[in-house]
Design a protein around this nucleic acid. Structure first.
Length: 274
DNA sequence: AACGAGTCCTGATCGC
DNA sequence: TGCGATCAGGACTCGT
């Protein structure tokens, strides 16, 4: 599923190809993935607009348009956003096709339809409750001091639940939560309030390392994720715990165990993570 | 406040 | 071979 590294990879892929391109036509639009505004308004606002510099906030992709509005895409679990030749066959579950003046098409595909597409000014979208407030980004320079919020540090919630909470840290999902906890040698069920200052620092550093390494490998593709050109990422091979329940811990050799924490499948090492 | 459960949805996988 | 059940989960809602 696309988390911060996958979304960042897509944004970096698409950015140079979208910047300055004119959006000539909305070729198709499935209203079920469009949360805002109406399909008619979307077409009216999108057609003729020119793309600015593509950005990312947490797992959200932001494409500023010359109109001052933003095209915002969240990929959910199975979403892909790709730049395809206009002549390329349209795959099933393609919900949005935007024709560019380069002859290419920006296509949003999402079999499970957990993702969403928005178009509007930042103020408009925030006011409508469609852009939730997000915590700090693990790629930010200041992230080493995370979390700065004392309520987070003193929370009784499981530390894994915090990692999955986008208001606490932006962009982390189930894969990288498990990976960061493993690298930080912390048990996912640990109450946040039980972490020492050095353990917090370790976890913050682990989050950044895990995210940067996955970006270097262009994201994790174990099922649906594809980059901005439709290719797979290579980070799956380097995952140390996710998807490896029962397999030996790469540090101590004992079998990794699976459980459920914060409603999500969670894999960790009983010995190495305390 | 914070948890679990239910919701949305399709495709891969499994047991019979 | 085929079919139904199960599972995967990001973000949201609702009940406890």
């Amino acid at each position: 599923m696309p988390e911060l590294p996958e979304v960042e990879t897509i944004v970096r892929d698409l950015r140079p190809h979208l910047r300055g391109r004119r959006l000539e036509a909305v070729l198709s639009l499935n209203p079920v993935v469009l949360r805002f505004p109406s399909a008619e308004s979307f077409r009216a606002a999108a057609e003729g607009a020119v793309f600015g510099v593509l950005g990312r906030r947490g797992k959200f992709i932001h494409a500023p348009l010359s109109s001052g509005e933003h095209l915002v895409v969240h990929l959910g679990m199975t979403g892909t956003l790709t730049l395809d030749p206009g002549a390329a066959p349209v795959r099933p579950h393609t919900h949005l096709r935007l024709r560019l003046d380069s002859g290419q098409e920006l296509r949003y595909r999402d079999p499970r339809r957990f993702g969403r597409v928005l178009l509007g000014s930042a103020r408009q979208l925030t006011k409508a409750g469609l852009l939730p407030s997000l915590g700090p980004d693990p790629l930010a320079r200041t992230f080493a001091g995370w979390p700065e919020d004392g309520r987070v540090r003193s929370s009784r919630r499981a530390v894994k639940a915090l990692l999955l909470d986008q208001q606490v840290v932006a962009g982390c999902g189930n894969i990288y939560a498990d990976e960061a906890l493993y690298l930080g040698r912390l048990r996912p069920t640990r109450a946040a309030a039980s972490l020492s200052a050095s353990q917090w620092a370790r976890l913050a550093a682990a989050l950044t390392v895990v995210m940067r390494e996955a970006i270097r490998r262009r994201g994790t593709s174990f099922s649906d994720y594809r980059d901005g050109f439709g290719a797979r990422g290579e980070a799956y091979e380097s995952l140390m715990v996710y998807g490896r329940a029962g397999l030996p811990c790469v540090r101590c050799g004992r079998p990794l165990v699976a459980g459920r924490v914060a409603g999500r499948t969670t894999v960790y090492c009983r010995w190495c993570q305390r």
